[in-house]
Amino acid sequence: MSDARNAILQNIRTANGALPPASEIEAAAAALIENPGDLRPSFSDQDNRSRFVEKATSERVTATVSEVAHLRDVPEAVKAYLAQASVPLQVALQPRGALTELNWDGIKTHSAPSPNEPAAVSIADLAVAETGSVVFLSAPDAPVLMNFLPLHHIVVVSAELIHRHLEDVFAIVGKAQQDQPRNLSIVTGTSGTADIEAKNIRGAHGPRFMHLIICQKVT
């Protein structure tokens, strides 16, 4: 390949000396995070769901939460949220069968989010209790911009997909290169900025409001 590549790698070899075998490097790397429990917040007094709700609704993350028993109850919860937030009954829907096949009577739906989309509904692929985050894996039925263009982002979270720590989410996605989605986004609340005088303001470029609908059973 390029001269630059060879020169950089040669400089590194000169500085570092000969490398041990790859297996030894891997073993050393694994040993450094052998006990991940020692390196992350523990919340042994809380289950995943209560920690998730506590963090997601905290002063910093600012999401609101409602709960439904079944996926089929989601449209009613969406309607209630939009009414309470004084948003017209119109949403962009993540083009995912589980969502589009629901009965959306009374709400106008469309699939592609507009540049100034007032509200959109997505299903989170996973969630993290530790931080109150939802996780989106991009796919043909899960476009990335759906999570960034709307002003109100309504996210359906399946209770059994709330995992404890970030590492648990990574383990489920898979560790190898071929396991990765194009984008794995960990979203914690709404778009914010502290760029003017370090004051926290919501709705910088992405959503200003996040509403989580926790669903007991997805099927």
Binding site: P140, N183, V187, S191, G192
Partner: peptide, 16 residues
């Protein structure tokens, strides 16, 4: 608020 891992360009069928 946002932590994203990116793996290459658009794939077959991706909307964006």
């Amino acid at each position: 608020q946002y932590t994203t891992f990116y793996n290459g360009p658009k794939r077959t069928g991706d909307a964006d």
